[in-house]
């Protein structure tokens, strides 16, 4: 089993376990934290696919911003005390460090061109040769998928207006 396969299976298992735990935990905070694990594992899988930029975005946007928002909402609604915490002690810390280190290692390794080049015929690697890591995402986003991109902005606007209408104390 090559290193790539090992990494793939490890993080796939972690993602599935995280997702299963996320929907079975009693405490919403624990659920949210398990979801973080799933999102991190998915980021690692993106790295295996040579999509480092997507992986970074996944960590920044989903595991970072959106999860923080989730936790804020959970704490604002005061749902956090439904059950005991599921992950504590030095064992958890060790696992977390290990996973973080693995992801970091993957990112470092994937970001070097030699690693990307070893899997010949890879579409992503080829795209990145031509357009760079960000360009491979940005170019279709602003050319072929420009219309959906713009629709998304209207969608967000509608969602903001709706949220204000529903939630504002006094209109």
């Amino acid at each position: 089993m090559s290193l790539t396969q090992l990494v793939f299976w490890t993080f796939s298992a972690l993602a599935v376990v995280g997702a299963a735990m996320c929907i079975t935990r009693r405490s919403p905070v624990a659920s949210a934290l398990w979801l973080v694990q799933t999102l991190f594992s998915l980021a690692a899988l993106f790295v295996v696919l040579d999509a480092q930029f997507i992986a970074v975005l996944q960590v920044l946007v989903y595991a970072g911003a959106i999860m923080v928002l989730f936790l804020f909402v959970i704490m604002l609604l005061n749902l956090g005390r439904a059950g005991p915490s599921d992950l504590k002690g030095p064992a958890g810390l060790a696992v977390a460090t290990l996973l973080g280190g693995l992801l970091f290692f993957q990112l470092l390794r994937g970001a070097t061109p030699s690693a990307a080049g070893t899997r010949g015929g890879n579409v992503m690697a080829q795209l990145q040769e031509e357009q760079g890591i960000v360009g491979a995402v940005a170019r279709p986003l602003f050319s072929q998928y420009l219309i959906p991109f713009e629709i998304t902005s209207v969608l967000l606007l509608a969602a903001i207006v709706g949220a204000v209408v529903l939630a504002k104390r006094k209109l």
Binding site: P148, I151, G162, V165
Partner: peptide, 15 residues
């Protein structure tokens, strides 16, 4: 596009 249109429609109608 169909999906985004559906979401735009749905989000507005939920509210």
């Amino acid at each position: 596009v169909v999906f985004l249109g559906l979401e735009l429609l749905s989000v507005s109608v939920y509210v």
